[in-house]
C-alpha cells in the first residue's frame, strides 16, 4: 500500500468512525433519561449506576468522535472507542444469553428498535474499522 493510499484510507476511516461516534453520542445526550432506561433494560447496574452511565458515556463517545474527526490524539481516542465497543459487545452478548428482548439504545433514544443481534452484527465492522485504523496509524510512526 502506498503512503498516499494509506493516508486517504486513514482519513476516510477517521471521518466515518468519528461521525458515527458524534451522531451516537449526540442522540444520547439529547435524551439522558430514555438512555438511562435503555441501560437499565440490560439489568446490569443499580438505578443510580444506570444514570451515571447514561450521563457520562455519551460525552466520552462525543469527545472521541470529535478527536477522531479532527485527527487529534487519534490513537488514544480510537483505543477508547475500541474498549467501549468491546464492553458493549460483552453487554449485548450477556443480554442475548439471558434472553432479554431489548433495544440496544445505540442511536436515537426511543427511535426504531434494533435487537441485540442486529446491534452485535453492526458493531463488528466498526470494531474492525477501529483495529484497521490503529494498524494504519501504527505503521505511519
Amino acid at each position: 500500500m502506498t503512503d498516499s493510499t494509506r493516508k486517504r484510507l486513514t482519513v476516510a476511516l477517521r471521518v466515518v468512525l468519528g461521525g458515527i461516534f458524534l451522531y451516537a453520542g449526540g442522540m444520547k445526550i439529547a435524551d439522558p433519561v430514555t438512555f438511562a432506561g435503555n441501560v437499565a433494560a440490560y439489568k446490569l447496574l443499580p438505578t443510580f449506576g444506570n444514570y451515571l452511565v447514561a450521563t457520562t458515556l455519551p460525552w466520552v463517545e462525543l469527545l472521541c468522535g470529535l478527536l477522531l474527526v479532527t485527527g487529534c490524539r487519534l490513537r488514544a481516542a480510537t483505543l477508547i472507542g475500541l474498549l467501549m465497543y468491546l464492553l458493549f459487545v460483552v453487554a449485548l452478548t450477556s443480554a442475548i444469553v439471558r434472553g432479554l428482548d431489548i433495544d440496544c439504545g445505540c442511536f436515537r433514544q426511543g427511535g426504531p428498535k434494533s435487537s441485540p443481534w442486529v446491534a452485535l452484527l453492526r458493531d463488528l465492522p466498526l470494531i474492525a474499522g477501529m483495529l484497521l485504523l490503529l494498524r494504519l496509524d501504527g505503521r505511519r510512526r
Partner: peptide, 16 residues
C-alpha cells in the same frame, strides 16, 4: 479524555 468527557457529562446532568 475519559476524565474530561465524564466531568462535562456529570456537570451537564447534575440536576438529573
Amino acid at each position: 479524555i475519559v476524565a474530561i468527557a465524564s466531568t462535562v457529562g456529570l456537570l451537564w446532568n447534575r440536576q438529573l
